[in-house]
């Protein structure tokens, strides 16, 4: 349940970290890299949504430990 959700989140973070690396990091030899910006923006919207869900998950985890359910 909680562990599998966390696993899913980690997979999503991994995918976004990958896309971020391929599009924004790495060596640039030619001065001009032209990418269609709309798609890049989509990646970032995705990332923001994802991170807010990470924060939500964290809140839930805290609530669980507050009620003494964790370990």
């Amino acid at each position: 349940m909680d562990m599998t959700r966390q696993q899913t989140l980690k997979q999503q973070v991994t995918l976004l970290e990958l896309v971020d690396r391929v599009l924004n990091k790495g060596v640039v030899l030619s001065g001009d890299i032209t990418l269609s910006v709309a798609n890049v923006d989509l990646v970032y919207v995705g990332l923001r949504v994802l991170l807010s869900s990470v924060a939500t998950l964290e809140e839930q985890r805290e609530q669980i430990s507050a009620t003494g359910a964790a370990r």
Partner: peptide, 30 residues
């Protein structure tokens, strides 16, 4: 940028990592 193209690029770079002693990955779109 399509997800397919990004994945192909990333996949090639991963494979190069496994077969060389150093890799400087290129940014997509080079």
């Amino acid at each position: 940028v399509t997800q397919e193209a990004v994945m192909s690029h990333a996949n090639v770079v991963e494979e190069l990592m496994a077969r060389s002693c150093a890799v400087l990955p290129a940014r997509f779109g080079s």
